[in-house]
């Protein structure tokens, strides 16, 4: 108990603090009497065990580290970012007609496969229905009618189709941007000639695949 609760002053400490030195027995008797007076309801053994018991710290508070935020999955670029980065703009040095002839051959092969061989006895309505849903990139397309006379007669390979325009590369290596509105285009595939009314065709290439075209309506520029 002596070691756990208190220890007697040494001779030097007693002299420094000007305290009267008591014998070890007298000191212990005083401490016991003091404890009995302070805690009357506890027995001596309980009191000693209570005083000698070690405190156990149940909770240990650490400094909270700032949690690293989960990385956001970067989604695709927005339309504005695409325009700013010029992701889909064809550079002038790549605007050569000869470079896109293999693309046209690939397109012809695709259309033949789509229309099951394009036999002479095939119904034109069936081909037209397929062409409405088909992809036109790589087709040789020409403007037959237009409200703007300077567009009429422009022929070339279709490189890009957007909602409102066709981008066509001509034999003279010029990239022509022709609006769909108020224009009639012609596509020729193995002696089949198909007309596209641009005013009714004002859709994105991707939207056209899901669109249901209606037969009714006036066909005019």
């Amino acid at each position: 108990m002596k070691a756990a609760i208190y220890h007697a002053f040494s001779h030097k400490e007693a002299k420094d603090h000007d305290v009267q030195e008591l014998g070890s027995q007298r000191a212990e008797a005083f401490v016991r009497a003091f404890l009995k007076q302070s805690i009357p309801h506890m027995s001596q053994e309980d009191c000693e065990s209570h005083l000698q018991r070690k405190a156990v710290i149940l909770e240990y508070f650490t400094r909270l580290k700032p949690r690293p935020r989960p990385k956001k999955k970067s989604k695709g670029l927005s339309a504005k970012q695409r325009r700013d980065m010029r992701l889909f703009d064809i550079k002038p040095e790549q605007q050569r007609y000869s470079l896109f002839l293999p693309l046209h051959e690939l397109w012809k092969q695709y259309i033949r496969d789509l229309c099951n061989g394009l036999k002479p006895d095939t119904q034109p309505q069936m081909i037209q229905a397929k062409l409405l849903k088909a992809d036109l990139h790589g087709a040789i397309i020409s403007v037959t009618k237009s409200k703007c006379p300077s567009y009429v007669g422009v022929t070339g390979i279709l490189l890009q189709e957007t909602k409102h325009v066709f981008k066509i590369i001509t034999r003279e290596d010029h990239l022509k941007v022709i609006p769909k509105l108020n224009c009639v285009f012609t596509i020729e595939i193995d002696d089949f000639i198909s007309y596209i009314y641009g005013s009714k065709f004002q859709l994105r290439a991707s939207e056209r695949s899901a669109k249901k075209f209606k037969a009714k309506g006036s066909i005019d520029l």
Binding site: Q94, L99, P102
Partner: peptide, 13 residues
């Protein structure tokens, strides 16, 4: 693939 094989610089198309 066809466009890139013809001209590797033509990545935009």
């Amino acid at each position: 693939h066809c466009v890139l094989s013809q001209n590797p610089e033509n990545q935009a198309l």
